[in-house]
């Protein structure tokens, strides 16, 4: 019984499929004139964001509100609170108020696991360091499901391009797309790949042009500007030339192939602006739109499990009394 949503591996294949199915229902809810259901009525969800975020935080909060949860936001810039003792105090203090779930984002890998040791509430990982961002992977899987009309991804090739080393989105997507049967190809200069992917279920290429023709889903990652000063790549010009998606490269993709990006985009660096906006190729806007439904599904599932756990606990007490 799932208590937390911290990584795709923790969710597992069945959990992943169940969540994607539930998302369909939430998409329907969101189309209603009053897009609100009572699934989380009486529950309190706290957003703990220790790293700047616009879309993920708002998407989680919208999702929680549409499920009728009470929401609190604890938004901290990394500069004002960056000591772990404050983090632990914060978690324990809020936890004592009797809240049901934490939605957590932090720049350090592993924080959701540490937080789950300090609280009895459910923990939803909204991104930890370079490690995991499971709801983004759910969004991406759901978007591909809708765009290609397939429930399983057997025979499909997902090509992820860019800064995979520092990407939680890539790590979660590799796991999720693999679970659904896709083949995953990573394209990046070796300085932006994790040091050892020999045991990962992926293929690695240093040349984007070599893999475009057999790509069904092309996933472009954002290149942070600090990667240049850290010496991972020489400059934007060379990166854009070697790994960026322009119209010439886009033309090499099969006609049905879709284009994805987790946002925010560096138009003109990893992706050409006109291609990103090409409605025949790009599902980037759909990714944003599906964010709320996916997060509603995730929190609804956790709440159902919480209800079952509470019922089980009550029965135990009853038997004892």
């Amino acid at each position: 019984m799932m208590k937390h949503l911290r990584s795709i591996d923790e969710l597992g294949h069945d959990g992943l499929v169940r969540l994607l199915d539930l998302t369909h229902h939430m998409v329907e809810v969101n189309r209603r004139p009053v897009p609100k259901v009572p699934a989380l009525r009486g529950r309190t969800v706290v957003s703990l964001f220790f790293e700047d975020s616009t879309r993920t935080r708002l998407s989680f909060e919208t999702a929680a509100k549409r499920l009728s949860a009470d929401t609190m936001t604890f938004s901290v810039s990394t500069s004002s609170v960056n000591k772990g003792e404050s983090l632990r105090d914060t978690v324990e203090t809020i936890s004592d108020m009797g809240i049901d779930a934490f939605v957590v984002r932090h720049k350090s890998t592993g924080i959701p696991w540490q937080i789950s040791e300090w609280t009895n509430a459910s923990v939803v990982n909204a991104g930890d360091g370079w490690h995991q961002h499971p709801t983004q992977a759910l969004v991406d899987c759901f978007t591909v499901r809708e765009a290609l009309g397939k429930e399983r991804f057997d025979g499909l090739t997902l090509t992820i391009v860019g800064d995979i080393m520092h990407s939680r989105v890539a790590r979660s997507n590799i796991a999720a797309f693999n679970m659904l049967g896709a083949r995953v190809v990573l394209v990046a200069p070796p300085t932006l790949l994790p040091p050892d992917v020999s045991h990962w279920p992926v293929e690695v290429s240093y040349r984007l042009d070599d893999v475009l023709e057999r790509t069904d889903i092309l996933y472009m990652l954002r290149l942070q500007s600090e990667r240049m000063s850290q010496g991972h790549v020489p400059n934007l010009r060379e990166y854009a030339e070697t790994y960026g998606l322009d119209s010439v490269r886009a033309a090499k993709l099969p006609p049905h192939a879709v284009l994805m990006h987790p946002g925010p985009m560096n138009r003109g660096v990893e992706i050409d602006g006109t291609i990103a906006d090409d409605i025949n190729r790009s599902v980037i806007q759909t990714q944003v739109e599906m964010g709320v439904a996916v997060r509603m599904a995730a929190m609804d599932l956790l709440a159902r499990n919480l209800k079952e756990r509470r019922a089980a606990a009550k029965n135990e007490r009853g038997a004892w009394a």
Binding site: T109, G110, G129, W130, Q132, P194, D196, W200
Partner: peptide, 15 residues
């Protein structure tokens, strides 16, 4: 340490 574990967990590593 640079290797399987650090790659999996996305931890800053050293060779």
């Amino acid at each position: 340490t640079k290797g399987k574990f650090a790659s999996l967990r996305g931890l800053p590593d050293v060779s």
